[in-house]
Amino acid sequence: MASMIQILLNNLFLVGVMVLSTLGITLTFKTANVANFAQGILATVGAFVAAFFFMRMGVDPWISLVGGVVVCFIIGYTIDVLIMSFMSSSGAVGRVMVTLGLILIISAFIPIIFGMIPYNFPRFFAGNFTWEMMGSTFIITRNGLFTFVTSMSITAIIFIALYKTKWGLMVRATASNATVAAMLGINTKRMTALSWGISSACASLAAVFLGAQTTNVHADMMAVIATISLLALVMGGFTSFFGPVIGAIIIPTATAMLAMISGLWANVLLYTFVLLTILIKPMGIFGKKTMEKV
């Protein structure tokens, strides 16, 4: 039991990273109606920019973090304005294909701009928290706890904004029906561009956190995380904002638990489990069944 809790504590930062990344993917999916496969590689760009500021220009890690996130916001916004807004007629799968094309383009540019050698990025907080409870000692890195708390707070802020502010209402209106929202005077183009920006920012924050915790920034760092975020989106269901985030909490936790049984096969078992879930409930655990119009 104690070792189980310890494993959960070790994985807390991963839950934070995953939740942020999934939140980003969900936001673009709901508002802009794009399953953004390119988000992982976009986030990696953010992490590289932050690490570049820190390593090459000697900027403070905190400011580097902000720099990476801002650059990513701008890239995301620009992609929507320059590319995605011309794709409105090409259907959901067509837009997904465009994000797949973006993966190729961005991952070609990363080694050209940043070089082939991985970058380092420091942890924001050094040291561990240690405490005793029920006769056993628990350890969590300060940085891991910070990552978890910050990610959860940002997620909470975005949720509150989505459900309590005027901006959130406009996003939800765009998500539920873009045409009607536009008729009611909402600038849907700005909404989708903003959600591209915000989701890229969230994802790059996740990537910088991941880079800081592992003190290493490299080109494939977000590949698995982005895949799992997409799986979480499918598993949690497309219809709600909450479902995918809960999926993003379940998946890394379950992986950690499974790793106790078999380190080697943990991921395989997990993917199999998720695939089975999708088979049994194709609309996701929290999804509602929608009728397809012919």
Binding site: V224, T227, L230, N267, Y271, L275, I278, P282
Partner: peptide, 24 residues
Amino acid sequence: ISLRVRGLHLLVITLAFATILNEL
């Protein structure tokens, strides 16, 4: 598996399948 899902779901599932194989 694909019988119950389509479009985007299918892309994600095949991607997950590929990830499993790549890990192996």
